[in-house]
Simulated scan of single mutants.
Amino acid sequence: MTVQTYQASCHCGAIRYEVDLDLDAGTSRCNCSMCTKLRKWGALVKPDAFRLLKGEIEEMGHYQFGTFSGSYRFCKTCGVHAFGDGELEVLGGKYYSVNVACLDVDHAVFAAAPVKFMDGANNNWFETPAITSHM
């Protein structure tokens, strides 16, 4: 396990954060309606591993759906979905879901990060969907 601190931001820089993350532990892509439309690529961390450096949560755009247990946070200026947050017992309580694509890293780092596919479209979150090529 190699936890590193990464810097991340939305496109215009109005939202900036840093996160302590082990990319080798895996990232995820989901086929639920929201993640499919966003092409979201996430990684979960506990609240103590996430530090908002710029932007106020109250001023960010935010969207919830389904069980309303999580929030998608996005920049009102450039529209980038920078991270999400919520609380689910199955995930160990409170969490942040960082948008891996917002990390300020070399593309080779992205290419090496393992990806787990989740079948959110069928509420079968811990199983791989039959088709993943579109994700």
Results as ranks from 00 to 15, higher is better:
65 F>K: 09
122 N>E: 11
68 F>L: 12
103 L>Q: 02
32 C>G: 12
118 M>Q: 15
5 T>L: 04
91 L>W: 12
107 H>A: 13
95 Y>E: 09
100 V>I: 14
127 E>Y: 08
76 K>F: 00
104 D>T: 12
133 S>Y: 04
110 F>T: 04
99 N>T: 11
51 R>A: 15
84 G>T: 02
25 A>R: 08
54 K>A: 15
22 D>Y: 11
11 H>D: 03
96 Y>K: 03
62 H>R: 15
55 G>H: 07
60 M>P: 05
12 C>R: 06
72 Y>W: 11
86 G>W: 07
65 F>P: 00
60 M>E: 09
125 W>N: 08
3 V>S: 13
24 D>L: 03
27 T>P: 05
14 A>F: 01
20 D>V: 00
107 H>V: 00
132 T>Q: 08
43 A>R: 01
25 A>C: 03
128 T>D: 10
54 K>I: 00
59 E>S: 14
68 F>C: 11
99 N>K: 09
52 L>G: 07
129 P>F: 08
117 F>L: 10
57 I>A: 14
12 C>Q: 11
13 G>Q: 10
96 Y>M: 10
111 A>S: 14
106 D>S: 10
60 M>C: 12
45 V>D: 11
115 V>Y: 04
13 G>W: 06
24 D>H: 08
97 S>V: 11
95 Y>A: 09
42 G>A: 12
6 Y>M: 06
121 A>F: 03
7 Q>Y: 07
39 R>P: 00
